[in-house]
Amino acid sequence: MTLLYTEVEEELRASVRDLLADRCGAAAVLRRVESGTPYDMDLWKTLSREIGVAGLLVPEIYGGAGASAREVAVVLEELGRAVAPLPFLTGSVLATKALLQVGEEDLIQELASGETTAALAVSLAASPYRPLPETVTADGGILNGEVRAVAGAEVADVLLVPVGTALHVVEVADVRIEVVPSLDLTRPVATVTFSDTPAGEAIGRLDVRRVLGFGAGLLASEQLGVAEWCLSTTLAYIKERRQFARPVGSFQAIKHRMADLWLDVVRARAAARNAADLLAVDSGSPGGQEAVRDRELAVAVAASWCSEVAVRVAEESVQLHGGIGMTWEHPLHLYLKRAKSAEVALGTPGAHRDALAALADLPAPV
């Protein structure tokens, strides 16, 4: 195992970063969230089709890149750095992972090519450690019920709907999708309502908690990207901002705060990379109970640590920017909101720590 980035990963990073810098700068993101249509689907088409990120997890025989979770993690880091309003996590990670698990080849090929966008009809706040609430029923291929806080639903072409262990595919034209207020303006959530919705036979059996665990481990890389942007932006600001005829970054108290944040981000990078590396072999055979346990441990560590680090660095960044950090015009609030919303996405830090304690056989204090 190596936590270092390979040459291929660095090339992928450079391609994604250059595209985002050109078309998804802070000003562009702010304009989009103010417009009420934050998702940039034109940018998504370029990213998914020309760079090929939509098919990173998809094997080459299905038209994908045949890459692994390591490459996906690199893309998520860059999307976190830009708080890019794109359906990559919801479509190319969660939905694609679900389809790979059930083996739906035709739809996998459509997602890999970027022609179709899918979303997993599961609440973004769902935990990989608890059964999903049974809010949707299936009777003779007809779905009824609703799922709240679904991310990516309003820009998806199809929805993947778990009902128990069965996975159904539903066209978005057959459901009602209502976007609801969300803290994260760059990742809206919606309530999806099924009312005698035709779904046909289930396409397979899905272990949705395994998919959510996979997503939680990779979400840590997005949170790492958020934290890295906040840290580097704050460092640049305190070098320029002057007070008492000297840069504020020269004050010892500021230096100590920045050093602590830097250490937090370095640890977050190690945790996120470790999770991505172990998840990279998750697409094949489980490799025995020991390998499964190692992956679950890595996910719990990365998810619990990176989520809190992203929030802490974003909060400190707002404080260290002073008055400008509190303005709408500065993009810092987008990063803080992304960090706060991601903190409760796919399992809270507390839920991941509880799972970590059980996996490591560390009993709670009496």
Rank of each mutant, 00 (worst) to 15 (best):
L167C: 07
V292M: 10
E228A: 09
V281A: 10
A27V: 15
S35Q: 07
A357W: 10
A21Q: 09
D174H: 05
K45P: 10
K337D: 15
A149M: 14
S283W: 04
Q243F: 11
E178D: 09
E240K: 01
I142W: 12
E134Q: 02
V33N: 02
L76M: 06
G213T: 05
A268F: 07
Q319S: 12
E228F: 11
A95P: 05
S68V: 11
L185P: 04
T117C: 08
A355G: 02
P128A: 00
L219D: 03
E315Y: 13
N274I: 01
A21W: 14
D184H: 12
D42M: 11
A345I: 11
G80H: 00
T116V: 15
V344G: 02
A69N: 10
D277K: 15
V175D: 04
V33C: 02
D139C: 12
T135H: 03
R338T: 09
A259E: 06
K340W: 11
H256F: 15
V53A: 13
R242H: 04
W305C: 01
K239A: 10
V180I: 10
H256N: 09
V208I: 14
A112G: 11
G140T: 03
K45S: 12
K45L: 15
E71M: 01
R81G: 01
V74L: 06
C230K: 01
Q109N: 11
P181W: 13
D106T: 15
E308N: 04
A199P: 03
K255G: 01
R241I: 14
R267Y: 08
V72N: 06
G55W: 02
I51Q: 00
G284P: 02
V163P: 00
L231F: 03
A280T: 05
V169I: 06
L120C: 00
L43A: 12
R32S: 06
G36C: 09
V172D: 06
K239D: 10
A138W: 04
A364Y: 09
P349Q: 00
V155S: 01
T197G: 08
E34K: 09
G322H: 00
R130V: 14
A339D: 10
L56S: 07
E329C: 10
T165M: 13
L12N: 11
E154Y: 14
S221F: 05
A342E: 12
S195R: 14
R242N: 05
R210C: 00
A276S: 08
T233D: 00
V83A: 10
A73C: 09
V93W: 10
D196P: 01
T233L: 03
D184F: 12
A125D: 13
T327S: 02
W305M: 08
G145I: 11
L12T: 05
L334S: 06
Y39I: 07
V122F: 09
V180Y: 00
T96G: 07
P128L: 04
D22V: 14
E228P: 00
Y335I: 13
D282H: 06
